[in-house]
Design a protein around this nucleic acid. Sequence first.
DNA 1: GTGAAAGCGCTAACAC
DNA 2: GTGTTAGCGCTTTCAC
Lengths: 335, 335
Amino acid sequence: MGKAVTINDVAREAGVSKTTAVFVLNNRPGFSAAEGTRIRVREAAQKLGYRRSGLARALSTGRIYTVGVVLRIDSGRPQDWVYSKDVLAAMARACHKARLRLTLIPFSSDAMLSVDDVADQRVDGLILVSHSADAFARQIYASGFPTVSIGSGYAERLVDIDQRGGVREATEHLLALGHTKIGYVLGSNPGIRAVEERRAGYMEAMQAAGLAPQCYTNHEAQACLTQAERPTAFVTYNDDFAWQLTVAARQVGLRIPDDLSVIGFDNTVLAETAVPPLTTIENPLDAQAERALKVLQCLLQGKESPTMAPLATRLIHRQSTAAPSGFSPQKEPKQ
Amino acid sequence: MGKAVTINDVAREAGVSKTTAVFVLNNRPGFSAAEGTRIRVREAAQKLGYRRSGLARALSTGRIYTVGVVLRIDSGRPQDWVYSKDVLAAMARACHKARLRLTLIPFSSDAMLSVDDVADQRVDGLILVSHSADAFARQIYASGFPTVSIGSGYAERLVDIDQRGGVREATEHLLALGHTKIGYVLGSNPGIRAVEERRAGYMEAMQAAGLAPQCYTNHEAQACLTQAERPTAFVTYNDDFAWQLTVAARQVGLRIPDDLSVIGFDNTVLAETAVPPLTTIENPLDAQAERALKVLQCLLQGKESPTMAPLATRLIHRQSTAAPSGFSPQKEPKQ
DNA sequence: GTGAAAGCGCTAACAC
DNA sequence: GTGTTAGCGCTTTCAC
């Protein structure tokens, strides 16, 4: 890269002091230099090819305007990734809006991340995506490094959505359609708060309706499809499971939604491209990302952030839900 | 954040000089301190909660061990994103392997990125993902900032795959199945090298077979499906177009692959989850990402990198291709 | 082997 | 308004 042109060089070239050069180049508010000076400084910078060093600035100010996003990169199936990538994209948009840079910090369980590796001043703070209470999550919070969790993750300082309400609404939708045998497909990672919350939402709705809840693992749900007493509808932990269920159903000759209704969660691209497109619960990722950033900013300024109500979800009606066969519904309440 | 503990503090606490402390903490090769000293320094660091500043180190060494990935964030449809996210994920894996950090630099056409914004020393170099010859790409290359392109992008210093060969192979596969009316769905962004190359691969295969090529836009391809003289098979610019074609085909009552064969490109998650799963051309993103990083490293060390042959693609056989109806194939040559 | 000192390029506090 | 100075925390060169 050759040697960098510094602000000193510019100042010298323009025949002014460093301060003046800095003020001009930074458009310091409330600073009115002689027009000639401004021009001279600008021209000098231009001519020399001066480029400010965000690095030196960061060292001096203590802020590098970059947030680190710590994300798992282990899982093999591309479908597992869809959601994480959506969270990342939402964080990217939020950072862009907030004029912050985003640094991706991959988290793989083989090479354990150390707090020192991460909290080395190249990021101002951290966003943990979908971390359970793993060693790293606990350590980083314990270290006091500004950190916020997002995406159905570790419960400490977590920006959360109304997981429970979302699944409750989905279950109620199925109930309203006339289903009585409604199963729930459990999330597979028990360390994560969303897994419990979503399940609880299902339980609540079933109990309120006086119906017996029936929980399945992903595998069990697919296996039970051929049995006579199978549920006529499923609420699933996420779109991936819902999508898998549609595949399994098609394989055993079940038609969706005629023979089986399915509702996913997250509204990932999987839900849009599935056949038929999936009714699902929208996960407001952009709002979460923006809120997470807001909380992080508070932390950076030393003030604890106000606690906020979980963000609302929304049921998106597509074509994977209908009344159970042989049932004429009393009229769909919503939408 | 309180005040940071510096190496000076550690040295003072341990009763040694800064140099010694640095040497111990950095495990400087070829430096053998007295065991007592080592321990004292380590304990002091531990006790004080010393954490090295990657920032200060970067300022001093001129390398921050971070690469910037410049990526479009404009497009609205989630399907448009799938491929970009895959490239990003591949870059993330490659960076992780190379022990480099990845900073995401969103590129949106509304707020034009300036070279100064980006080349501010918070990244050592840049990877441009799927950029056409837009103003930014030209400027950044002109500025001399270490930059490499990837992902069917701008032709300058581009790590490329054998686009042409991939599509040729796909077309030949359809030919071997007995298709004679094979259409091609064009990429929509004419500024990008891959758009031309892929089309050329199709043209070559058709001409070699003595068949008339027929190119369509995405929209045209979907529209022609109801016409009598429609192609019996399509090669498409990417999986998204292929997937859209399956949806359109289903809507007009065409069955895939019985009535229509379709081949995608990129092997994104769309190809796996489509109904039926799509035969497609695998895009070796991980290899591209690693190669891009290698080229960037060369640049950073001041040496121009050796030119390399485009990376090979591979046809992945799934269920969206078959012999045209009423035709008994002579035997499928591959796989 | 260990210590002292000079920067990296910027910001900010304080004189002029 | 403009210039001077002292750091930010690290690496590195050169004495001891």
